[in-house]
Design a protein around this nucleic acid. Structure first.
Length: 274
DNA sequence: CGGGCGGCCTGGAGGC
DNA sequence: TGCCTCCAGGCCGCCC
């Protein structure tokens, strides 16, 4: 589902459309998400307050409201958070509706219910169990090949496993891990113990470039990603390996292969990745 | 402690 | 057409 670029695109569209608007009321129709929704806390911390900013940490969207509270939204695999007219017809799996002072509604849909929605004091975010163990932001300052090399010390995992470990670097899921490794020319199964510092730098740069290119394209829409206004992304047409098994590598002409790794599909080009 | 795997859910695609 | 199986972008907790 949504990885860092999709959540960042959502952040920007939510920010431009709801900052300044007020949350009038909160209706929870289905509380059984990955974590059950605590409706009373949502109402206590959010109702009657205006949205003052929208942030993101890893794949979590942070909707900051007046008087020091934050609504946290995680899209899981199939979640969508969209702004709609107040009288818009209810959509399937619309679990939470926030009525806004402008008359519109912010609605959360999630067919698979792998998502999460909760509220907490803004000052408590860093210490909260969802955030306390998260690693570095790949598009922020300080992320480099040295970050990855340091995390690789005393480990023996595959490089793809390291990239997808949120305690090391956040926001990189199954699609962008495959894409970044392809850009860097590194085989996804390569042990982290056998990667030179030059390759770590190349990989960190590839992670950064693939994520920022995806943000610029509005994210990747394979099935259900859409931003706050319901717009799809376009990065899927620029994917070099993901979901392209059997097709030609656009860089070297080799044939893209799929393998099973950590229970997930990994895509790579055996000719230009080693 | 690191790392691998199953489980949580529903829907869509593809095979028979 | 219908039924079955597999698969999906995340994350947590359990096990070794």
């Amino acid at each position: 589902m949504p990885e860092l670029p999709e959540v960042e695109v959502l952040r920007r569209t939510i920010e431009s459309s709801v900052v300044g608007d007020g949350i009038e009321s909160i209706e929870v129709r289905e509380r059984r998400l990955r974590e059950p929704i605590d409706t009373r806390t949502l109402r206590r911390l959010l109702a009657g307050r205006r949205v003052i900013g929208v942030g993101r940490r890893a794949k979590y969207l942070l909707v900051h409201v007046e008087r020091g509270s934050t609504l946290v939204v995680h899209l899981g695999m199939s979640g969508r958070l969209t702004v709609a007219a107040g009288d818009a017809a209810r959509e399937p799996h619309e679990h939470v509706v926030l009525r806004l002072a402008s008359g519109r509604k912010l609605r959360f849909r999630d067919p698979r219910r792998f998502g999460a929605m909760f509220a907490l004091p803004t000052a408590a975010i860093d210490g909260d169990r969802h955030f306390a163990r998260l690693g570095i932001e790949p598009l922020g300052v300080g992320f480099s090949g040295a970050t990855l090399a340091a995390a690789a010390a005393r480990r023996n995992a595959s490089v793809k496993g390291l990239l997808m470990d949120a305690a090391v670097v956040v926001g990189v899921g199954n699609i962008y891990a495959s894409e970044a490794l392809h850009r860097a020319g590194i085989h996804p199964r390569r042990s982290v113990a056998r990667i030179s510092s030059e390759r770590w730098e190349r990989l960190a740069a590839a992670v950064r470039s693939v994520l920022s290119d995806a943000v610029a394209q509005g994210g990747t829409t394979l099935n259900d990603f859409a931003d706050a206004l319901g717009e799809s992304g376009y990065f899927q047409v620029l994917l070099e390996v993901y979901d392209r098994a059997g097709l030609q590598c656009r860089r070297c002409g080799g044939t893209i292969r799929r393998l099973r790794q950590l229970g997930r599909s990994t895509y790579y080009c055996p000719r230009c990745q080693n």
